[in-house]
């Protein structure tokens, strides 16, 4: 395997047990640079559990999670705390929107810069030139991201006052502020109307193509998944049942069975 095709995220035989329940069973999955990958599967298939394991919210029962950040050496993520994973360059959004409701839109994004900045208590109190510079950098970067996302008009609005679709996009902006090489989106289109979904699709494509950030998304909106993904991974009952391009997945009998059920003899 040469350096170009080395996967950004390399998950090997990931297993997660909750007591007697195996939520993830030997799942292996790779996300490559420059691709939009989708993780699909029926409800309860373990998609969000997969995200939680990768981002350090859960400690996996078995298997390995590796990342190959561009220009840095390979790291194993098992056992890292959530904030450490984020510092490695993996950012995520949540299925049920988890914004900082009573902070402004800009501040929400500024939090994303936290792990890329240093100033501490002393700097905050003294406001030395270095801290001021850093603070300015945070504001500028955050504003630039909001401009890209299309929320620049809303910077001083409280996050809780944004319309639903904008809240979803703000979550993406916040994730982008952490300088990730891979963003994990957990059902970004949930609850969006078709027009908002189309706009989101354009946005995700742009994040991938223009920002060079790879995307792994969980999504139930099949129209969007089919049109946006370079590669699709299918989970069912905690097991990975298929991987492939859109065309391959559409033809795959195992996937069809998982989604539509089996035809029974009459």
């Amino acid at each position: 395997m040469n350096a170009v095709t080395e996967p950004l995220l390399d998950v090997q035989a990931l297993t997660m047990n909750f007591g007697g329940l195996t939520a993830l069973d030997q799942v292996s999955l790779q996300v490559h640079p420059g691709e939009v990958a989708a993780l699909i599967g029926p409800n309860g298939a373990g998609k969000t559990t997969f995200f939680n394991c990768v981002t350090g919210i859960y400690r996996p029962s078995g298997g390995d999670i590796f990342v190959n950040p561009p220009g840095k050496r390979r790291r194993r993520l098992n056992g890292m705390k959530t904030h450490q994973v984020t510092a490695q360059g993996l950012a995520r959004t949540f299925q049920n929107i988890r914004l900082f409701q009573k902070m402004t839109v800009l501040e929400n994004v500024m939090i994303g810069r936290h792990c890329r900045t240093r100033s501490g208590v002393l700097g905050a109190v003294l406001r030395d030139p270095q801290t001021r510079r850093e603070e300015r950098e945070i504001v500028e970067r955050s504003y630039a991201i909001l401009e890209k996302i299309g929320l620049a008009g809303e910077v001083n609005e409280l996050a809780m006052n944004l319309p639903y679709g904008d809240q979803r996009r703000l979550e993406i902006a916040r994730a982008m502020a952490t300088d990730p090489f891979l963003i994990l989106l957990d059902e970004p289109a949930a609850g969006m109307n078709p027009r908002e979904t189309d706009a989101l699709e354009v946005l995700i494509r742009r994040i991938c193509d223009e920002e060079g950030i790879a995307v792994l998304l969980i999504e139930h909106d099949m129209r969007m998944v089919m049109s946006i993904s370079n590669r699709i991974h299918v989970l069912d009952y905690g097991k990975k049942i298929a991987t492939g391009t859109v065309a391959e997945i559409c033809e795959n009998p195992v996937v069809i069975k998982a989604y539509l059920g089996e035809e029974t003899e009459e």
């Binding site: 949540f94 988890r98 914004l99 900082f100 009573k102 939090i111 952490t178």
Partner: peptide
């Protein structure tokens, strides 16, 4: 506001 989201954004809670 939200501890889980805060950690996911790279803040050492």
């Amino acid at each position: 506001e939200d501890e889980t989201a805060c950690e996911a954004m790279g803040v050492n809670a």
